[in-house]
Structure formats: C-alpha cells, structure tokens
Design a protein around this nucleic acid. Structure first.
Lengths: 218, 218
DNA sequence: GTCAATATTTTTGTATACAAGAAAGCAATT
DNA sequence: AATTGCTTTCTTGTATACAAAAATATTGAC
C-alpha cells in the first residue's frame, strides 16, 4: 500500500514532537516546515489535521497550530485509561484466547526474559510490544484492539523513557507471567486485575521518574 | 471561536453518513460534493481527513474515500469498549465525585423519569446524555472524559434508534438509579459493574433489534 | 467475438495563487 | 508617555491549476 507525502510528513512530525523536537506551545510555521520537508503547504496542512486529531497538536482557527506536549498529569491520565483498556483485553481474552496464542505468549515472555538478562533494551522493548499486541488481538474485539494500538502508540515515548528504571524490567516480567497464568486458568477477573496493575504501575513509575528528574534539575 | 468551512463540512458529512445518507462502501466524489457544498476540493479533503481519523470513512491512497458503515459486529464491539470506559468512569467517580455532582445526577434522573412518563423521547434522550456526561466529567480524568465523549458520539445513531424499544426506557432508568446509589455509597466496584451492565445491555438490545428488523425484511 | 494492449478520460495528490483575517508597527491625540 | 486608531505585513484558509496515477474506452490481433 503506497502512502502519500502528507502521511509521511505526519509520521515525521509525530516522531519529532514525541521525541521532544519542539517546545510545548510552540507554533509550527507552515512555510518554514514546507521548506524543511521540501513540499508545498498543502500536504503539510493535511498532516497537521492528523496530528490535531490524535491530540499532539492544537489547531486554533486563523491562528495556527501549536504543539501540545502532554504534561505529567495528562500522561498519568493516559496511563489510567490504557490500564482500563488493557484490563478489558485481558478479561475478554481469558475467555476467548486460543491455545496457539498462549504458546506464543509463553515464547514471547521467554525471549523477553532473555533480553532482560542480556541487558538488551531494544530486544526487551520489542518483545514487550509483542506481548501486548497479542493480548489486544486475543480480546477478539477488533475495535478494542484498534483503540489499544492507538493509545499504545501515544504512550510510546513515555514507555521508552521508562526502560531506564533499573529493577523495573524484572518486576515487569513477573507481572507478565502472572497475566499469562491467569489467562491459562481462564480467570478473566484475575487476568484483568493483573493487567490493570501492570499498566498502572508503569504510569506511577514514570511519574516518579519525571518528578525525580525535575528535582535533580533544581 | 469561529470555525472554518472545512469543519462545518466535516460535521455535515458526519451527520449525513451517520443518518445513513450513504450506502456502505460508497465512494465519496470530491467534485460532486464540492459542488453540493459550494466549496472547492481543498476544504472537502480536509473534512475527509477528519472523518477518516474517526473511522467513518476509509481513505485508500490514489483511489478515493469510501464510507464505512459499521456493521452489527463492529457496533457490538464498540458498545463493549464503551461499557469498559464508562465502567472505569463510574469506578473512578465513586471515589472522586462531588456532592454537587451527585445532586445533579439525582435531578437529571428525575427529569429523565418525567420524560419517560410523558413519552417525551427527545427529553429522555437529552437528560440521558447529561447523565453520562456528568459521569465522564466526575471521573476526574480529563483524557478519559475526552475518549468517552468521542466514542459516545460514534454510537449516537445506534443509541437513538434504540429508543424505539418499549420497556427499555423504564429499565434503563432503574439502572441509572442503581449507579447513583453505588456512587453515593462510594462503592467503586458496584458502580463500575452497574455501569458496565447498563451499557452492555444497550448493545445487546440493539443487536436484537437489528436482527429482528433483518428477519422481518425477509 | 474475445482478449490484450494502448490511448483517453477521470480522479487523486500537490503546488501555487489569491483572499481574508490577525498581528505588529506607526502615528496622532490626549 | 500612554493609548487608541490606522496601516502595513504576515499568516491562515480557500480556490484553482497542474501532474501523476488509476479507471475506462478503443482499437487491433487472433
């Protein structure tokens, strides 16, 4: 599926914003960016629309578009919602998951564990993504899967940052095991609770990380 | 806040699609619609982008945009997700809700009840919306509130259709009372369960409605 | 008559031109 | 000197023009 220029620009801008390439509240200059990407204003504006819809940017009519870096509060809120959605996935998956998918989860967890031992952050991250993706899919609810992927993507930069936290990786793995175990038992409630806690703790850990970084800077 | 032409068109198209003004899979002709709305293709295309992001329309590069009427399956999936999100709202609200908001919910429920007695569908619908809006807000999570509103809007046409079901209104009211009661008691778990059931049953009822309509047509 | 290859038309994607609104700078008045 | 009103400039929103890709029609061969 061939993509168009405006899509590529949207992705590029999204990455730029998420990596912190722009300050919060900064106005995105159409002409400047048009030059930078070597396109006209038209595809840029289409890209802006996409970013506005996903909440990374605010469009004020006749004024321009401004980047909206989610602060710690909004970030926590997003994790809270993510926790609910993933918990729902887990609960539904407990009833619907296939034997094959369970095998897959086990294998993914093993690779994830190996990555932890090897201090392979990229590997850990990849397998962790896979673990969650499988669960979204096994919820059996395509719409839910879609929504989870969307939110997951929004939280991407935070989650990535969080990898720096020592000790968190091992704990996270233990939580994965608990989730799989609940799924194997077909216990929806337990799976949901385990998943909710797993995601919620990420949000909290990140919150602490941000707070400590801020504190260190003062 | 003045809005621009493309926003108005997006709203108009959204309404048209949701009311069933287009067949599923139908291609939206840019030129034709441009004439119809008396604008150029540019704002139309911006409107398309918005619709594509909210899932009402599918954009296939170099082919055009096609309306995507959600079928019964997708509709059920959406209700399932809505149920989860609203349940989360209820659970969070149980801990955070203000006395004033509780009063508000009571008042809204009374007006809702009155509308049921008076067979005032529009009134019922309006107060019902209000009930849910208050709960979203009282979750204390702005992001969750936003997501709920988005989904709520997507489900709008289905919910509307559902009003035709006799007897459902009274039952729905009883469910509202139960939710408020749980909130008053500060029982998050009970509030969440009541809310989940409340929304889920809407999805099921609607599913039956669709099935019966289909059956009648054969 | 059917299939295939090519030409034509249509339609999308992008660039540019134009119009209208907002911001900024300047001048005049108090 | 400060403030208000005007003018100028810059930016956004919309229209149109152009290019590239897809769909359709046409013609030729078998």
């Amino acid at each position: 599926m061939e993509r168009k220029r405006s899509d590529l620009i949207a992705d590029a801008l999204e990455a730029l914003i998420l990596e912190g390439g722009f300050a919060d509240g900064e106005r995105l200059d159409e002409q400047q960016l048009a030059q930078r990407f070597d396109v006209s204003r038209t595809p840029l504006r289409e890209a802006f629309q996409r970013l506005a819809l996903s909440g990374l940017v605010e469009q004020i009519p006749r004024r321009g578009v401004f980047v909206r870096q989610p602060g710690p509060v909004e970030m926590m809120e997003m994790f809270e919602v993510m926790a609910e959605l993933e918990a729902a996935c887990a609960r539904l998956a407990a009833a619907r998951i296939s034997e094959e998918a369970l095998q897959n989860l086990h294998a993914t967890n093993e690779r994830c564990n190996a990555a932890v031992e090897a201090r392979d952050h990229d590997g850990y991250y990849r397998e962790n993504e896979r673990f969650h993706a499988i669960l979204y899919q096994q919820s059996g609810n395509g719409f839910l899967e879609q929504e989870c992927q969307r939110l997951h993507k929004l939280l991407h930069p935070f989650r990535r940052l969080q990898l720096r936290l020592r000790g968190r990786l091992r704990q996270s793995m233990a939580e994965h095991e608990e989730i799989v175990s609940a799924l194997e038992a077909g216990d929806g409630h337990r799976a949901a609770e385990a998943m909710r806690a797993h995601v919620a703790v990420q949000g909290e850990k990140f919150h602490h990380l941000v707070a400590s970084l801020k504190h260190a800077a003062e």
